[in-house]
Design a protein around this nucleic acid. Structure first.
Length: 401
DNA sequence: GAGAGGTTTGGAGAAACAGC
DNA sequence: GCTGTTTCTCCAAACCTCTC
């Protein structure tokens, strides 16, 4: 159930590797664990400090170099500890999401996981080996959001800056009539997109991963003498902050879309919209409630777009956008808020293709040609059966036009 | 070199949900 | 029902780049 990652914690693949090593030694591939099991615990003989190669000796203690206060009880920047978690589980949550996006752990229930066979292979590879980087690269390229990022930079010159690139949930201009619990009605612009700092955090993450697996190189950074990207740019990757804005594409990056890719970890149904339940400020309760009232419409129309585009991609056909909107308008209640233009909304919503792992080109103004196919079972993982049925019906209706 | 303005990141606070 | 988890927005510190 891959999600849109937007925190710094999991941006260092090396940290993820040591955390996964600790996890694998505790649970193997057959035992279930939850995120709190990844947090540093002094009483755990297999905690992450037993495997981490980045610890620094400070005042006679082994300390994580990425904590602002190395002597902090948090112990590990990326997971925090059972004794002190100044990030309210945001860190360990991001680590779980990262390992899942890479395909190294698999989600079983809402909050339970197992180490996957790919994860096991990665743990059993040596950090300094090409095998390590190959497994990591396969993981990075399996993540839908990365494919969206690589598609965006494919349109840029070989030497590029990531300033101005945004990878986030689409913004639709959409006003709905909302009645609060006191019976007072007002028009509210519902919140469909991400805030700017969320984009910044996502970008920081994606760049870290792409450099580590040899897809892009930081400009003006003298790397170490190694053919392996994660060794060559080890110091750059382990910097506290991303400060380089200029990058260069590698040959691998430039050839990536020569063939149609199959994306193993696209965003899942429920991740096609941000978690609006967690919104609090910026208009407060009414904005949250008005957005939540329309959550299923937002999810379903994004899902249908991705599902249908993938269907046509699998059949090596282009999607007729006009027909799609027409078919969706036949089920207007399911997809669109009253008083808003369906065509305009879908023109915004189709941007979801990038982060969902299925970027596309547009031919003859209305024909959408996908550059990838995505793993449908991951997209459908938490999709209601009604939504899946509706997506199939839309395809039938399009074919009948 | 100073100052303005932008970026990156950690952390706080909040709401809803999951699971016991 | 309670506790812990998940993930959002916002704030601010620290740092960077750009201009003069």
């Amino acid at each position: 159930m891959a999600l849109l990652l937007n925190r710094k914690y999991g941006s260092r693949l090396e940290c993820l590797y040591y955390i996964l090593t600790s996890c694998y030694n505790k649970f193997g591939t057959s035992n279930v664990f939850s995120l709190k099991d990844l947090k540093y615990d002094d009483d755990d003989s297999k905690n992450v400090h037993q495997y981490c190669q980045q610890l620094q000796n400070i005042l006679g203690r082994q300390c994580c170099p990425y904590l602002n206060n190395p002597l902090s009880l948090s112990k590990c920047y990326a997971t925090q500890s059972v004794d002190s978690d100044s990030t309210k589980s945001k860190a360990v949550s991001d680590i779980g999401g990262s390992l899942e996006a890479l395909g190294f752990i698999t989600r079983l229930g809402k909050r339970t996981y197992k180490v996957s066979s790919e994860g096991e292979k990665w743990v059993n590879s040596s950090f300094n080996s090409s095998e390590w980087e190959e497994i990591a690269r396969k993981g990075v390229l399996s993540y839908g959001v990365i494919i969206g990022f690589l598609n965006r930079i494919a349109e840029l010159p070989d030497d590029f800056t990531y300033q101005g690139l945004y990878l986030s949930y689409p913004h639709t201009a959409e006003t709905v009539l909302y009645t609060d619990p006191n019976g007072i009605s007002s028009y509210i612009d519902i919140s469909t997109g991400s805030q700017k700092d969320s984009n910044t955090r996502t970008m920081s993450r994606l760049i870290g991963w792409c450099v580590a697996v040899g897809l892009i190189e930081p400009k003006g950074v003298a790397g170490a003498a190694s053919p392996l990207a994660h060794i060559k740019y080890h110091d750059f990757l382990n910097k506290e902050e991303l400060t380089v804005r200029n990058f260069k594409k590698t040959a691998l990056c430039k050839s990536l879309f020569n063939h149609k890719l199959k994306v193993a970890n696209p965003l899942s149904y429920s991740r096609l919209h941000k978690n609006a339940e967690s919104m609090r400020e910026n208009g407060g309760e009414d904005l949250r409630n008005a957005t939540l009232q329309n959550k299923s419409k937002i999810l379903d129309r994004r899902y249908v777009f991705v599902y249908v585009l993938n269907h046509y991609s699998k059949n090596n056909r282009a999607l007729d956008f006009e027909k799609l909107v027409q078919a969706m308008e036949n089920h207007s209640e399911a997809f669109f808020t009253a008083g808003n233009d369906a065509h305009a909304i879908m023109e915004s919503e189709c941007e979801i293709g990038d982060i969902a792992g299925i970027p596309f080109t547009i031919e003859n103004d209305t024909m959408f040609v996908a550059k990838t196919t995505i793993e449908e079972s991951v997209l459908n993982e938490d999709a209601p059966s009604e939504s899946i049925k509706l997506a199939k019906k839309i395809i039938e209706e399009m074919e009948a036009m």
